[in-house]
Design a protein around this nucleic acid. Structure first.
Lengths: 137, 137
DNA sequence: TCTAATGACTACCTTAATGTAGTCATTGAA
DNA sequence: TTCAATGACTACATTAAGGTAGTCATTAGA
């Protein structure tokens, strides 16, 4: 029961940037080293974050990545969405195919409750929360 | 963000048995058909449930599976444990390696809160809850 | 005692997620 | 204007989860 690897990396990447100065620019090689994420895998994830409007990139010499918006505008949920982590409500704990409007799978209500609270957490946690609290990593 | 396939199947299998009479015996072929779980995959999962003391099996002609204990003694959490779904508290949302006693990853506290509530739900939900509520599937 | 019906075991195959390699496109600075 | 440093793109390789096949072991009943 956890986020997949790609999502974990994505959150760590964005957090790293936020915590080391969101105004600065970061290149892939450095991020890769600092966070021990395989270089090529990292650039793949960065592209997803760029596509998802979390990160801006500039190519060429002196290029790199930086944050696309104000910290208060970026939610953890946005990051997860950018890397396609499935968080959708309609997905049931026992698989979609069992649940519909008429019938519920056995765990439906209980699961939905905890799942909703998790989604709320992701939706409501913005990047400036980390800065504000001075969290280390 | 969901339980893996094996866990989903395991819960559905046990629920099926409970809802169709926990005193009866069920053979693999029937369960496989009724729940649309591939036969061989099913027997693999059944072995895990037997090993985990959720289910009893008897071999040979007229053999089959039945529930090992009283319904009130079996928790959803036990089923998940039997099939090795990882629910352990020490596993952090951003991977184990970042969190230790001294330092916490950025999402640690928030994640832990929702995760705990999920674990509580799994721990506190026993099979007789389903019977009591007359849930369909 | 035989045998058909059952679950157990082992090894393999398939698929999707994870990770790697190579090359192309862009751009600032010498 | 060249070129080195960068990110983007495409294709492939590896790994782990999901799923299948074949055979063995057990047992109730004819």
């Amino acid at each position: 029961m956890k986020l997949n690897n790609t999502s974990q990396y994505a959150i760590r990447i964005v957090a790293y940037i936020v915590q080391n100065g969101s105004k600065n620019k970061y290149n892939a090689k450095d991020i890769s080293k600092k966070l021990s994420i395989p270089y090529k895998y990292l650039t793949k994830i960065m592209s997803l974050l760029v596509e998802g409007n979390i990160i801006l990139s500039s190519r060429g010499r002196e290029g790199g990545y930086n944050i696309a918006k104000e910290l208060s505008e970026i939610k953890i949920g946005d990051i997860l969405e950018a890397v396609k982590e499935s968080l959708h409500q309609e997905e049931c704990v026992l698989g979609n195919h069992l649940c519909n409007k008429m019938e519920k799978c056995i765990l439906h209500d209980k699961w939905l409750f905890t799942k909703n609270s998790m989604q709320e957490m992701f939706k409501n946690t913005t990047l400036d929360d980390f800065i504000a609290k001075g969290v280390q990593r």
